[in-house]
Structure formats: C-alpha cells, structure tokens
Nucleic acid binder design. Sequence first.
DNA 1: TCTGGGGTCCTAGGACCC
DNA 2: TCTGGGGTCCTAGGACCC
Length: 427
Amino acid sequence: MLKINEKNKIYALVDCNSFFCSCERLFRPELNNAPVGVLSNNDGCFVSLSKELKVLGVPMGTPYFKVKDVCMKNNVSVFSSNFSLYSNLSDRVMQTLSQFSPRMEVYSIDEAFLDLTGFKNLNEYARMIKKIVERNTGIPVSIGVSSSKTLAKLANHIAKKSKKAEGVVVLLDQSRQDIALSKTPIGKVWGIGRALEVKLQLMGLRTAKDFRDYKNDLYIKKMFTKVGLQIKEELQGYDRFSLEELTKPKKSIMCSRSFGTPIYKLEDLKKAVANYTSSAFESLRKQKSTCGEIGVFIRTSHHHRNKTYKATNYIKLLSPTSDSRKAISCANLILDRIYKKGYKYKKAGVYLNSLQQESKKQMSLFENYDDEKALKLMQVMDRINSIEGKGTLRVAACGAGNKAWAMNRNHLSPRYVSGWSNLKQVK
DNA sequence: TCTGGGGTCCTAGGACCC
DNA sequence: TCTGGGGTCCTAGGACCC
C-alpha cells in the first residue's frame, strides 16, 4: 500500500476559551476575572469552567452538589446552561473565522480547523485571527498551528496553558515538536482516551513523543486498530484526518434528558418521550431526512446499586417518515413493551436511526458558488494579502463544475485561471 | 439527597447465502 | 457416517470526542 509521506498540510485549530463561560461573561463583564461555571441540564454537572474556577481545583464534569461549598466560599458565579445563546454566539465566531481561509471545518460548537496550507507568516496571521475574532465577537480564542489536526490540537493545548504563548502556538519545527511532545502525557493526545491510555502505559509509552517514536507499526495497528496507527502518524506530522468542510447530515439523532424529579408512571414517561420525539424530529426535518427506525430507552439511576432497571427497544418503520405523530405512536408502543411498574425512572430518551436524505443535493461551501460566496472569497484574499503582501494568493473561480477556490498562486492551474475573469465581474 | 446530552467510528461475532 | 469455506450483511457494544 502506498504511504503518503509528504508533510505538506498546515492546519490551525481555533478553540474558544471556556466557551460557555465566555458567553455568559459577555453579558456580565464584571465577571471577567472572576471564577465562573456553567452547569448541564438540571444543574447536574459542570460543563464549562473558567480558568479561575479550574484553579480552585474543580475538574470538568464534577457534579455541582459535590463542590457547592467550595463555590459558595469562593464566590463562584454559577449559571444554568443556555444553549440557544451559545449556538448563536458560535455562529458568529464561525462566520468571522470563515474570512481567514477558504477551507474550514467547524468541528464543534467552540472549535474549528482552518486550512492554512501555503500561507506564510503563520504566527502573525494566527495572531491577527485571534485579535479580530475577539474584537468582532467578544469571545477569547486560542490557536494552535501545525501540519496535522492532531498536532494542531496539541499546539492549541499548549497555547492555552503557556503564558508566554499568549494564546497562539505554531508547532512546525522538529526540535520544538520534540519538546512539546515529550511534555505531553499520552492520555492528553487527541483520540487517546482512558482505555487506550492504560494499554499504552503498560507498553511503557508515557508521553506523546514515546508513542510517536515507537517503531513497531504493525503491533500498534493490531493493538489499537487502524485509528491508533493514524493517530501515531498524525503525531509524526502526516495528514491522516483530513479536513471535512461539508457539514454532513447526521446519521442518527437522539434526544434524551435526565429527570429532575423521578418518574414512576407510564403515562408520565409517555409525555416526556413524546416531547423528546418531537424535538428530535425537528432536527430531522431541518436536515431534510427521513427516519427508518425509532428507539426508546428508559432507565433508573445508575449511581445506586439497588433496584436498577434499564431497557431499550426499537421499531423499524415500513415506510420512512418525517412525521412526528407517527413516531410518537411508535414510541408509545415501545414504552408499553419496556415499562415495568415499581421503578424510579431517572432518564429517558429517543433515538432516530436509519436516516436517509430526502434529496441528495448537498452542496459544499464553494460548490455552485454564487455572488455572495464569491465575495466571501474576495474577502479571504484581502485578509491574506494584508498580511502576506499583495499577489501572494489569488482567488479563482472555475467554470466547470462551478467550483471556486482561493489558492496559492504557485498552485494555480490553468483550469482555475479560466474562471478568474468571472469572479472579477462578480465583484 | 443531588451525577449531562449528543454524536461518530470501529470491531467482533452471528445469521445467512452459495 | 463423514460435515467446507468464503463472502456479505447486520447488530451490539466499546471506544472516542465535545
């Protein structure tokens, strides 16, 4: 099999600092240097912690009741989560980021990868991105730049921690990579979770550098599957998890909640699940999919041994649907099957599986470009030129297939140049 | 007493077919 | 009585992420 060995990509990972906390702070500037935390549904656990709260020794995911005292004593501002606000602000951040590269992957609500391949003065460019995002949205970000997503992620991690870095780390030369990787515990590497961490440590691999330099690839593949080997190669700087610009439609959708107060009765479960079903179907219709299978689960608390019960069951639909009323009657049927009397239910949810697109017309950002997208490309070009000098990059639009790209002049092929005049006309 | 919600990908193993 | 072997598809469950 051909192994592609060129390290020719450059990715930036832009990550919002303590995102939910930062969102809350936008409306309470007086909290800017104070400890802030945001809680999950039912105010269960912390899902976002400001730097000042982390310093107090509260780890991510801690149940609130366990640290309530600490919070009171230290005057911590604790918020219930407000996801519609966060998702609004996220859109604004992403919108701003899209001005800095023609290729971008929105990875999560608070993170995006930018393809900066071919760009120069990366440090300066990244600092400009950081400054402009903060100015336009009020959300502070950290940026890590390197030749694979995994390394960019690692660089970002350092950018967050190191004071000297001031929020931006470009991790490209070998000696700096060696130092950074040798200081990174193996479990901190993106894609290495608790289970793999244990296995790797048993092999004597304690740091990211140990793993990167481990010689036996076949053994890695056997022990950690294809993905494990890919992570190792990403640490070596090879691009194995390439950028995914398209926001693909979801393959499954679920909606579930824990109950603040437990539920005992079947009819109450049915009401709750009906609500979850309608909101799951809203997402389903939004991405123009139909659903071919519906599943429901109910469970008691898993934190106490005695009298636990959990059950899941599915119904396959003869004809896929996006009509939530049909789905709700299925959900009720399932609940009739799995409900057992006498239990204290703490959580329930609905799964939508076997999703299919109603129409296959999925467009990438720059496919079927229109005036607006073309103008956006011009914007990107201006940004790039402002830092690298005019003429470094050129924006071209390709007539065939209606694709438009911004690219390095050196990589400009005649095929793309042909569309150049097109785009100028648009401007 | 009180412990989130929403996803993806991969593999092993069983069912089934020829 | 002896009881093959290879392929595909599906599902459950584990691992990971934010």
